[in-house]
Amino acid sequence: MLLSACTGSGPDEPAVTSSPVAEAGWVPPPADAVFDYQLGGAYPPAGDVGIVVRDRTAAPDPERYSVCYVNAFQTQPGENDWWAREHDDLLLKDAKGGYVEDPDWPGERLLDTRTAGELADVVGAWFAGCKAKGFRAVEPDNLDSWTRSGGLLTRADALAYGKILIDRAHAAGLAIAQKNTPELSGEAGFDFAIAEECAVYDECGDYRDAYGRQVYEIEYTDNGADAYGKACKSYGGEISIILRDRDVVPAGKPGYRYEHC
């Protein structure tokens, strides 16, 4: 995986010198369009692809609806020094003052969503940077980080912060995705869903019920072919489903895999 003048900029990210500028006209991605998930590195997508998801540090695809990935609820490991230096008070800490990390993604520290307004100033400026580059939507990741906080954060904290991020995205002229976390589907007011492994966990219907055909689903090769086949058989005519290698490496690199149904 994966600022205003008053906050500074993250590593390798140019400073944004103003807060997000309100713009009318944001639109969600086209329903059931073929998409490609390129977080491991940008590459030219296949001709039938209509939606491309890339990291906020990458350039959007100028010919397709482009979605900007932002790790909005946790840090990227390479940015930990920057967070500690510039916004240490926004990082979640345990009772002993240590940083709380995601046990599944070493080095990713949880952001303290109880400081929702201050966090949104930082992340909202990243949204503005996505818009300035030409992205049309944002994908704020790790909405479910409260479940890995050891009880320090709550579902309500995640929802409150999520709603502020929705306002910031819309003010910047961007649609915004719910990333995973089916138990929150439809509650916060996201515009569409990007879901990982919903066939593995039997969650695809939850997203479909909340977002109709505007669900973009990724299954991974390390789960075998059954989950992808199940997703295609059950929902392939209703939502966009792809199969990708777990590291989402660029086309032409060892391990690359991409299919859609």
Rank of each mutant, 00 (worst) to 15 (best):
T7I: 01
P14S: 10
A15G: 13
S18I: 06
S18E: 14
S19F: 11
P29G: 12
P29D: 09
P30I: 10
P30Q: 09
D32W: 02
D36H: 04
P44R: 11
D48Q: 10
D48K: 09
V52D: 06
V53A: 07
A59L: 13
E63W: 02
R64N: 10
Y65Q: 03
S66T: 09
Y69F: 09
T75C: 12
T75E: 12
P77E: 11
G78V: 11
E79S: 14
R85Q: 14
A95Y: 02
A95F: 02
A95L: 09
Y99K: 05
V100R: 03
V100L: 10
P103I: 02
D112Y: 07
D121P: 01
V123F: 05
A125H: 00
A125K: 00
G129H: 11
G134L: 08
P140N: 08
P140E: 03
D141E: 11
D141I: 08
R148W: 06
G150C: 10
L152I: 02
T154C: 08
T154G: 09
G162Q: 06
K163W: 01
I164G: 02
R168Q: 14
A177Y: 06
A177R: 03
A177H: 07
N180Y: 05
T181Y: 05
T181V: 15
P182C: 05
L184S: 07
G186R: 03
G186I: 06
D191N: 11
A193L: 04
A195W: 00
A199Y: 03
D202Y: 05
E203S: 12
C204T: 02
D206Y: 00
D209K: 15
A210F: 08
Q214F: 01
Q214N: 13
E217C: 10
A225N: 07
D226C: 00
Y228V: 06
C232S: 05
K233V: 07
P250W: 10
E259G: 05
H260M: 04
H260G: 07
C261F: 06
